[in-house]
């Protein structure tokens, strides 16, 4: 027996997760935490897709989530490689250390 939740609950959860992720990106200085926060934001948007898809009985929401998952995997591999390079160059994980492009 499936308990059907109202869609708004799922969307609110997705919104909260997204906001948490955004705040994380904005306030954390550690670049790894920033990457994690972006993952949270991606998953929040995935959740929103699935919720909306389930509500309409449409598999497109889940397909969209698969795309996001793939994209997130690729993004994490590139992001981690960049973080590695970042650490080699600056000997720190503080994102504010890389401000050489200041105008």
């Amino acid at each position: 027996m499936m308990i059907s939740l109202p869609m708004t609950h799922g969307l609110i959860l997705a919104g909260i997760l997204f906001a948490l992720g955004l705040v994380g990106v904005l306030v954390r200085r550690n670049i790894i935490f920033m990457l994690l926060s972006i993952e949270i934001m991606l998953n929040a948007s995935g959740l929103a897709f699935i919720t909306a898809g389930a509500q309409r009985g449409d598999p497109d929401g889940q397909i969209m989530f698969l795309f996001i998952l793939t994209m997130a995997a690729a993004e994490v591999s590139v992001g981690l490689a960049l973080i590695l390079q970042f650490y080699h160059r600056f000997k720190t994980l503080d994102a504010d250390a890389a401000d050489r492009m200041r105008g």
């Binding site: 904005l26 920033m34 994102a95 504010d96 401000d99 492009m101």
Partner: peptide, 17 residues
């Protein structure tokens, strides 16, 4: 306008948000 280009990633993210 130059002042807005801080070179800090978080600043730009803030701008986008």
């Amino acid at each position: 306008i130059r002042r807005t280009q801080t070179g800090r990633l978080r600043g730009y993210a803030m701008g986008i948000a």
